[in-house]
Structure formats: C-alpha cells, structure tokens
C-alpha cells in the first residue's frame, strides 16, 4: 500500500516538474501564474497522500492552509494586471 502510494507521489511530483517548462517558457504572465496554481493543487493532493503514507493527520492542516490561501497570490496578480492595463 505504502509502496503504491509512494509511486503515485513520484508521478505527481514529476507532473509538477514537467509543468515548470511552461513557467520557464511563458510567454504570457497569466500562463505562468496558472501553472503555479496547478502546482498548488497538486501539492494539496501530495499532502493528502503523505498524511496517509506518514500516518500524520496534522498534514491535513497544512493542506487546508494551502487550499485556503491558494487564491491570494492569483487575486493579487489579477488586481495589479488590471491596474497596469488602465
């Protein structure tokens, strides 16, 4: 069970690292931001799985904080972009 979950964790991490290519290439800032958003969601999934693998329910709180605050950076980006467009 633990082995299978660990392999899934590796798959998720590789998927994040693959997405980094989009951050490096861009070209739109919106796309880079979007990619960061994907990483946030994937990190939440990894934390959920890790809470099982490491038998540490406290990790759910970490995931909860990620889930709640994921929007802050993106809202900041959209607000500032709207200001620059004006």
């Amino acid at each position: 069970m633990i082995t299978a979950l660990s392999i899934i964790l590796i798959v998720l991490l590789v998927s994040i690292l693959g997405g980094l290519i989009r951050v490096l290439r861009g070209p739109e800032p919106a796309e880079r931001m979007l990619a960061a958003q994907l990483f946030g969601t994937a990190s939440v999934a990894m934390l959920l799985i890790l809470s099982r693998v490491m038998a540490m329910p406290a990790l759910l709180d970490v995931a909860l904080v990620f889930a709640l605050l994921a929007a802050v950076t993106l809202v900041c980006f959209v607000v500032l972009a709207a200001k620059e467009g004006r």
Partner: peptide, 13 residues
C-alpha cells in the same frame, strides 16, 4: 486522480 493531474500537465504543455 494522479492520472488526471498528469493529463492536466500535458494539456498545459
């Protein structure tokens, strides 16, 4: 679920 994350990344790329 992990499969869909990979699919999302492929879509992003």
């Amino acid at each position: 679920g992990a499969f869909f994350f990979v699919a999302g990344t492929i879509g992003l790329l």
